[in-house]
Design a protein around this nucleic acid. Structure first.
Lengths: 118, 118
DNA sequence: CTGAATCCTCTGCGATACTG
DNA sequence: CAGTATCGCAGAGGATTCAG
């Protein structure tokens, strides 16, 4: 594989911005665990995601879900029970992350082999 | 695309670990700019990468390069000039990152379209 | 049950100065 | 030139408590 971009000026800056956009979305300790939970259970309640993402606090979960919603990756639905419950699910756009996460997974596995030699 | 993993227990945990491995390597403000510089210029000196990665401090560059070297993504070669210079380049393993970065770029572009609508 | 509010700690990162 | 050493701040994230 040729390891070059055509132009280290223009195109390079655009690429940097795009990669940063992706990283910003995925960044932090909890984004991917949360997304994975929503990916598996197509609908999931707050307290359930809390259990799936082992170790997270409600403060963090709340914050992260809000960001994911702002980024149009997750949809929030209030269910009018007593007491109120809330359901979260991936948007169509959110589902496209699955592919990206798969790539990250694959490279991570290959990388671990290189580092640990196994 | 079906958005599921086969098993939310076993396989899920392995995937989480792999993704985190990838993210750890790429994490932080400067890893990708540095890698991109090395990707374009197949060999590059410390002071040059410093200029490529606009805004980075020598302290940070030094730290990041060290981490990349530990992760076997980058190779360091001391050139015995006066004063000494040092050349960095991607390892074979490091070059495999290009593909991953491309995926991150592509998704970042698509994501920006969704968010900004343009 | 689903958060919001507070408080506190720890880490990433910038600025600057110094060394071989 | 290629780093290392020190300092300081801002933001990420944990624990706990409160509210609708």
């Amino acid at each position: 594989m040729e390891c070059q971009t055509k132009d280290f000026g223009q195109e390079y800056k655009a690429e940097m911005r795009a990669v940063r956009d992706s990283m910003d979305v995925l960044n932090g300790k909890w984004k991917i665990p949360i997304l994975s939970s929503l990916c598996y259970y197509h609908k999931r309640r707050f307290s359930d995601i809390l259990k799936d993402s082992v170790g997270i606090s409600n403060r963090m979960l709340s914050k992260e879900l809000k960001e994911l919603e702002i980024n149009k990756l997750v949809e929030r639905t209030i269910i009018d029970t007593q007491p109120i419950t809330v359901e979260y699910k991936l948007t169509e756009h959110g589902k496209t992350l699955r592919t990206l996460i798969n790539h990250l997974t694959d490279w991570g596995i290959a990388h671990r082999k290189v580092i640990t030699g196994k």
